[in-house]
Design a protein around this nucleic acid. Structure first.
Lengths: 191, 191, 191, 191
DNA sequence: CCATAACCGAGACGGTACGTCTTGTCTTGCC
DNA sequence: GGCAAGACAAGACGTACCGTCTCGGTTATGG
């Protein structure tokens, strides 16, 4: 039932080998020095198999992004009743993850890919911050009487701080989670 | 004294034509579809003239970034005594600039370049937010009794919000400047 | 059995187009102004297709030489019993061929190629005079009691006279075939 | 008096350094891998100095040829009264010279240059065999009642045999001088 | 149970761009 | 004005990948 008429089924092994090779080369070489030929060779696969199912480098990266669960290990924001503490612990985790190699290099490659190709951007942010973003926004609005838009901008500032640190190669220091959490808690209280 | 020993002097006209062509192609095609051959052809210049002085695509973009004054038209933060109002008007301007075409496309290309190459990142953020960043940090610390590090993180959150909006193709809405300015004013008052 | 393992077979059409383009450009521009890019463009072929199979300009010319049958239209020396007459008619033909355009220009190009690259020399002389040389030597030794070496030198003198005329741009005049044939017949009778 | 108006005279040192460098590179790399830049660098000279006086690679080689006396060390054919013996000793010398390194490589380069460029051919053969050719022709006609044309063709055969050996990388063996001399003596006696 | 059809690895194809090398011209400053 | 130095526009070099197109071979139905 997986295909219309006769014919061999798509190879799941090839698909996984390709996505794994994509990840490895993205880490090792970055987005624009990532080549389809390199992926094919590393995955032990013909180029045509890649072009058959993905069609372009960006489509490949776009799918890789939604497929790798380790990028957003824990999307859920804890709820102990203390917004400040919950935000802080979630941020602590997110910042630590974005600072550790090889994740940092991988993320930089993905940001490059997102900047070059809007479909990658779509998937990256849906997957990376998207789920967390919704949770964060809901959590914030639960505690503070603010509009959805205001909450969204606020959350963008937090996510943006992490990306900005990544791009400028200046990792966020120890107490950053507290500062950023305080930004929300204090900043929004006035509205 | 224009050069050490014998030999023709470097052509200033060629240098300017190359940087102008770099800008144009960055806007039109983005960073990874920007080619040295394309720049050379558009600038009416031999490829060797580019490689003699820059050596790589990223070096070319890195210099373009520091050379283009229109990227950071007004780096100075106004000082009327009212921090909230000053931040808001400065942000209004910065957000408007990052939203207008073709600047938005150009910035996306530059973010891609920065993500791929750390020397571009260095120059881009030194030039783009660097000067403003220092001014903002100083301004904030003048009004609030916070550490330099805290101020830096806070400013990163604001800058990051703009970049995040750019990357996700979701322009910041009207009232964003006020929200972001309020973030600082309210968020830091608790420290 | 057209190839070892998987993969598309070599294109015979491309191979022929490349050799034809080589010939045309050799005639039009000579050996050192013959470019691989020019051959590729004229043949409607990617450069890599040339480099895949030949690897250098000289290898290309070397194969062209063994491939073009018109260079040595008739390698056979007639045998009417009269050595002098047979040599003369064979020489008449060879000289006429080397004097006619565009063959003369082509031969000059090939001599240049042979002088630059010993593998071209190998193939050129194997193909051009090689077969004829063996026939001539055999024919001479059949009529005259001389050593193989002596016969070889004598034949080299005849071939050399034609090449020398070509190089110096001084075509051999009418009666040359008779003079050269007489050289053998008379010159060797003394041994 | 060496120039029209004011200004520095042409540097004889530069001229000689250039021709010496031309010779060296011709031996080391052959004609088509000889570059003007290489000559300029080796001679310690600006490129313009070469272009000012010669204008092209072939002109440079063409002048080098007429300038190097070692190419035709002894142009005179001895005259002891015995034509066969005189020819033989002259040929012995010529063959030995064409077989010895680095002269052989140099000659191959020059033949390549001659095949590519008719002005080089002109000078090469005027210089190389020209003087000797006239002497040989005169000497032969003094002994044999043949036309100038016949003598010229005969001499071409001898010169050609040496060039042919050079091009095919098959050095003429020991007794070759005698065979070639005999060719003339015997071959022409019938006329 | 075997023909048909879509998959697979491999790799040649026509192309584009790479970064380097050389050409012939043109400054530049010293002699 | 000659000269060494060297920047310039142009364009070929040989290599790396692009995305497409065969090749032979391998699963999978479905007639």
């Amino acid at each position: 039932m997986s295909q219309n008429k006769g014919g061999r089924s798509r190879s799941e092994g090839a698909r996984e080998a390709i996505l794994a090779a994509t990840r490895q080369l993205l880490v090792e070489r970055g987005y624009d020095r990532l080549t389809i030929e390199g992926v094919a060779a590393l995955a032990g696969v013909g180029k045509q198999t890649i072009y058959r199912w993905w069609g372009s480098k960006s489509a490949l990266v776009a799918e890789y992004v939604t497929h790798d669960d380790t990028l957003v290990a824990d999307a859920g924001v804890p709820d102990t009743g203390d917004l400040q503490a919950d935000l802080e612990s979630w941020l602590e985790d997110a910042i630590a993850r974005s600072n550790s190699q090889p994740t940092a290099g991988l993320l930089r490659g993905l940001v490059a890919a997102a900047a070059e190709d809007s479909s990658v951007a779509e998937n990256l942010f849906a997957s990376l911050s998207g789920r967390a973003e919704q949770a964060l926004i809901a959590r914030v609005r639960q505690a503070k009487p603010v509009s959805a838009e205001t909450a969204r901008i606020t959350v963008a500032a937090i996510t943006g701080a992490i990306i900005y640190a990544l791009l400028t190669n200046r990792p966020l220091p120890e107490g950053s989670a507290a500062v950023l959490a305080g930004l929300i808690d204090g900043g929004l209280s006035r509205e």
